[in-house]
């Protein structure tokens, strides 16, 4: 079970990329963030502002050159199943069926036998029933995105990092999966950090929206969203929040 009191704290995070042509490229500079369990925090900002870089740092796939990122007081050193990552490209393992893709992490950690039921539970929860034995090439993009999300949630990680996993989907499927992610949040109460380009998506799903400046990315402001779920996308309040964030994104 996940310890609900743990917090994700990032302070003064800095990441520089070495580029052969342009020299050092400062992607993220003095970036702070704090997040609690049960919270969805959306990161929004212009392209190349280091949003995805930050997610990769939290996941432990990349190392920061400055600042600290801690979860429950412990510094993040490398990847762990406790910080699940749903990637933008839903490249599932093509040689595994839907069911086995979802069970991948449990098997890798050697806990599949004890937690076998969770796989079927997740399949039912994400509306994948009937597709257990299908291979990734046999299912649609929307289904694949669901499998990728289930693959992460089935492990019950403390932190879930969503790097625009829905950006390639049509608006229809997208709306449905947004609701499914909210449902999963209510059930498992992880910390969810999501990167998105879509302001509507951020306002619809997140409890807080953190706006980043253009490169080097740093905190430009934060918008709290206190609307109850399910949110009405055309209510004046909703549209007002969208405008508010839009204004914050106009950098010059």
């Amino acid at each position: 079970m996940v310890d609900m009191d743990k917090k994700l704290v990032a302070k003064g995070v800095r990441r520089v990329f070495d580029d052969a042509e342009k020299g050092a490229l400062l992607a993220l500079h003095d970036f702070d963030l704090e997040a609690e369990h049960g919270e969805i925090v959306a990161l929004i900002g212009p392209s190349g502002c280091g949003k995805s870089t930050f997610l990769r740092l939290v996941a432990g796939l990349d190392k920061a050159q400055g600042g600290t990122i801690t979860y429950g007081g412990e510094e993040i050193k490398g990847p762990s199943y406790d910080r699940g990552f749903v990637f933008q490209e839903t490249n599932l393992y093509p040689w595994l069926t839907v069911e086995k893709n979802i069970a991948f992490g449990l098997k890798a950690r050697g806990v599949y036998k004890q937690q076998k039921d969770r796989v079927q539970q997740m399949i039912d929860l994400m509306g994948l029933t009937g597709f257990e034995k299908s291979y990734p090439h046999q299912i649609s993009g929307g289904m694949a995105a669901r499998v990728a999300i289930a693959q992460t949630f089935v492990q019950d990680p403390g932190i879930i990092l969503l790097d625009e996993p829905l950006s390639a989907l049509d608006a229809f499927t997208r709306a449905i999966i947004q609701d499914e992610i909210l449902k999963m949040r209510d059930r498992f109460k992880p910390i969810i950090l999501m990167v998105t380009h879509d302001i509507e998506e951020a306002v619809y799903m997140a409890d807080r929206v953190i706006v980043l400046t253009p490169r080097p990315g740093t905190n430009a402001g934060e918008v709290k969203i206190d609307m109850p779920h399910p949110r009405d996308r055309i209510s004046p309040e909703f549209i007002d929040l969208r405008h508010q964030i839009m204004d914050m994104l106009e950098f010059d």
């Binding site: 990552f85 490209e89 991948f104 890798a108």
Partner: peptide, 27 residues
């Protein structure tokens, strides 16, 4: 190999050895 496949396995808690056998080899 597509690095994404390996990173995905890492974030799912797979060890180096598991990745070789269950990601690199089938790939």
């Amino acid at each position: 190999i597509d690095k994404g496949l390996i990173e995905r396995a890492e974030t799912l808690g797979a060890s180096k050895f598991y990745i070789i056998l269950h990601v690199m080899l089938p790939n």
